[in-house]
Design a protein around this nucleic acid. Structure first.
Lengths: 124, 124
DNA sequence: ACTAAAATGAGAATAGTTATCAACTTTAGG
DNA sequence: CCTAAAGTTGATAACTATTCTCATTTTAGT
């Protein structure tokens, strides 16, 4: 993977983002500072960054993928009402991967763990 | 939800299926016995059955959704090589939802828990 | 600076799924 | 058992998210 200005911008934008944005959301943000950036470039780079373990692609949330600059082991929660995505600490299930591996005998390389329901704020 | 012959056929076909099929796979199977069934009818009914908790839609596996007639609490593993989907018992993380709920204070209505890696067979 | 490999932007193409709509079924009430 | 309202169907158009193509530009090593 060579250096590329666009990839740097994309990664920085994702890092500065508190939410877990979709490509569409990122594209809107990126275009403000870099009107010439192409959607294909964005997708290409998000995929490359994810393949290299620099970011994480989160599937299973909605019809579109979300992206996370936090690659530490943790889970996600999406509110069915406001669609906001929250982090859940991996502490709620220590050794989950290890145990799953022991039970199945499979080599587990990754996981997508997504909860959904109603967040505190929407519950009021 | 009224009775419909097509829905019954779709549900039965899913129940008889040991794998966790995609809509495409189900459609191919269904057409053999019911050549006139429409793809739209299949998707409509899978969504309705899932909304009513009769089946479960599994997202986060591949670009397309898979469907599961087993609605008991359990997780999934997809082999990155052969793309087969396996069940993992929820016993590997007892009270996972309860703990996540305690930690976050959110009302958790469901979860999608997907592991991926290499299955026993492909590991040989 | 020169070259090969990698990356870009623009837009076309693809895949999976949902929407539309006229015709047909199902259901509940009289 | 008839009817009207509500629900469902098949066919196909439309949509959305993402990937592909390709000519041009950028990067990295010599």
């Amino acid at each position: 993977m060579n250096y590329s200005r666009q990839r740097e911008i994309i990664l920085n934008t994702l890092k500065q983002n508190v939410v877990h944005p979709t490509a569409e959301y990122l594209y809107d943000v990126l275009k403000k500072e870099n009107p010439s950036i192409s959607l294909a470039t964005l997708y290409r780079n998000l995929n490359q960054l994810a393949e290299n373990g620099i970011i994480k692609k989160i599937d299973g949330l909605e019809s579109s993928s979300h992206y996370d600059h936090n690659t530490h082991d943790h889970y996600h929660f999406i509110c069915d009402k406001c669609k906001k995505v929250f982090d859940i600490s991996a502490d709620v299930a220590p050794d989950l991967v290890k145990k799953a591996q022991e039970e199945t005998g499979f080599t587990i390389m990754g996981s997508d763990i997504v909860f959904h329901g109603i967040c505190k704020n929407c519950n009021k």
